[in-house]
Computed example of a mutant assay.
Amino acid sequence: MNIVEKEADRFFNRLYRNGKVNNLENLKDHITTKLYDFNRDRDKLDFLKIIRQKSVEDKEEHMKNCSGCGYDEERDIGIFAIDQEIDKINRFYSYQPKTEDEFSVEQESELHNKLNDILEKLEKQGFGQQIIFDEIEDLKNHFNLGKKNWFQLLKGKVVDLTLKKVLDKTIVQEIYDQLSEGFEQVVKMIE
């Protein structure tokens, strides 16, 4: 259990188990105060998601034997407040890959050119479906995900095109091999 998880566990037990939450204002005040303990948005989101999950589980467990005491309404208020905080952080949160996972400008340019070459080859082979072009163009906009996540996205897109029978498995394998050339270490991590 990491520090964020421990803090979420303590917060949940202290706040909910001791009956300190009875209205939206009170809960939002406690959550906001606790979030100041975390500098990273990722930690804040993890914390909020943990206490949200605990709230849902607690409500479900209580409702098995409840006869209408209002406990569920109190948990719903809590979940509402947590969801608002998650939404607020997500508006400004952007994923930052670790430095070693970031694409260099040269790598981005090389992949961009490879994607253009693939589009050109597919068009010459008679694969002119808009879905193919949209998926490949979409890949050009996501280099900010980092190498590992970008190649996972690529893999998902090409598998999806195969399942929809838009492209043959052999063509998809060629595309994947061409794009992953030079990134064998990243591709091995994914597989």
Rank of each mutant, 00 (worst) to 15 (best):
L115C: 00
L145V: 06
G128S: 13
I131A: 11
Q125V: 05
L115M: 06
G146V: 00
K114V: 03
D117A: 09
K140S: 01
N144V: 07
L115D: 00
G146R: 00
L119Y: 04
H142S: 08
L122I: 06
E123I: 09
F133R: 15
Q152S: 12
L153R: 13
K148V: 14
K140G: 00
N113R: 13
N144M: 09
L153N: 10
L122D: 07
G146Q: 01
K121V: 09
K124S: 13
H112P: 00
I118Y: 06
G146E: 02
N113K: 12
I136F: 03
L154F: 07
K148Y: 11
L153T: 08
L153I: 05
L145K: 13
N141W: 03
F127V: 10
E120D: 15
L119A: 03
G126S: 08
H142F: 05
G146Y: 04
L139C: 07
F127P: 04
F133P: 04
L154Y: 03
L154E: 02
W150N: 04
L122M: 11
L154H: 02
N149D: 12
I136Q: 01
K121T: 11
L119S: 09
E120G: 05
H112Y: 13
F143V: 01
F151D: 02
K114G: 03
K140H: 03
L145F: 11
K140P: 00
I118W: 05
N113M: 10
N141M: 07
H142V: 00
L154C: 04
K140E: 01
E137D: 15
L115S: 01
N141V: 01
K124L: 15
K140Q: 07
I131C: 05
D117C: 07
G146F: 03
E120Q: 13
F133S: 15
I118G: 03
N149I: 01
Q152N: 13
I132T: 06
D138C: 04
D134H: 12
G146A: 03
Q129F: 07
L119V: 04
N149R: 15
K124P: 05
K121E: 14
F133T: 15
G128T: 15
G128K: 15
E137Y: 09
N116M: 08
Q130M: 13
N144Y: 13
Q152V: 09
H142A: 02
L139V: 04
G146L: 00
D138N: 14
K121F: 10
L145I: 07
D134F: 11
L139Y: 04
I118E: 02
Q130L: 13
I131G: 05
N116V: 03
K121C: 05
H112A: 06
K114I: 00
F143L: 02
K148F: 11
E120T: 09
D134I: 10
K114L: 02
N113G: 06
K147M: 11
E137F: 05
L122C: 07
H112M: 08
Q152Y: 10
I136P: 00
K140C: 00
N141L: 08
E123S: 15
Q129N: 11
E120C: 10
Q152G: 08
L139S: 06
E137K: 10
W150R: 04
I136H: 01
Q130N: 14
E123D: 15
E120Y: 12
K121D: 12
E123R: 15
I131M: 10
D117W: 09
L139M: 12
E135R: 14
